[in-house]
Design a protein around this nucleic acid. Structure first.
Lengths: 132, 132
DNA sequence: CGGGATCCAAAAGGATACTG
DNA sequence: CAGTATCCTTTTGGATCCCG
């Protein structure tokens, strides 16, 4: 314990930041309540606004529009307006959105595999908390 | 257009929900501002509270505690109290947290690969929006 | 050292009326 | 049909003080 005790074995920053920062970037895009569902829907085929509204139960008009705009802005989907009457608008996934499917599916696999473990952990934790 | 026009080609729900629901479960856990950084830090070795506080710039005491509690509740990390004085508490990643690393890294790979494309898309979108 | 309790600001999200 | 605009509620996160 000479001069070295300010040299606390700090958390290895390079590792964390190289993984954490890109992930935060993604989460800022698709970490919200509706983006993933919209991406998955649009990945399969072009989808119209009203289709999405009916196909994603519980989403509000406002949030659908807002989420679509953000995804379009990030280049994850393309908005195509057909100047017909009544108007028709189609949303289409871009290539990078399609490439996002695999990572998403990897997350889903993890979640399905450990769902039981997590639920059990929750129950145990809550019981302990309830007993104070 | 006989009786079939209520049979709109709806979004293939089974596909979406089988992927989207588990993903929403994850995002409800690690989609917040700090969880990923904490998980990555703890995955490498047990870490103390104050180490995390210093190692994760910008996090508030409150959010660190809160996020740690939630991760512990979900069984992603274990809290160990050493009854010394002053007290010492270590947080350790569980196996399922370690298994989460691969999916996270897959997301990070996607993000790093397409960062440029996304930035370009944003700039283009914002320019168009600015021109009205 | 490792929090809990409290208060406050900001952001996300929902309901819905209106419109080209 | 595909939004926009407006208003409101809920959630999330930050600042701080206190305490064993």
């Amino acid at each position: 314990m000479s001069q070295g005790n300010t040299a606390v074995p700090d958390i290895p920053d390079p590792f964390i930041h190289e993984v954490a920062c890109p992930i935060r970037d993604i989460l800022d895009r698709v970490g919200n309540k509706w983006s993933v569902q919209i991406i998955l829907a649009v990945i399969q085929r072009p989808v119209r606004f009203t289709e999405l509204e009916r196909g994603i139960p519980g989403i509000s008009r406002r949030m659908l529009t807002l989420t679509l705009r953000n995804l379009e802005r990030d280049g994850l989907l393309v908005r195509t307006v057909f100047p017909t009457v009544p108007p028709k608008v189609e949303y289409t996934a871009t290539d990078i959105a399609r490439e996002l499917y695999e990572p998403l599916e990897a997350m889903a696999v993890w979640a399905r595999r450990h769902r039981g473990t997590i639920d059990t952990a929750r129950v145990a934790y809550d019981e302990r908390a309830a007993r104070d």
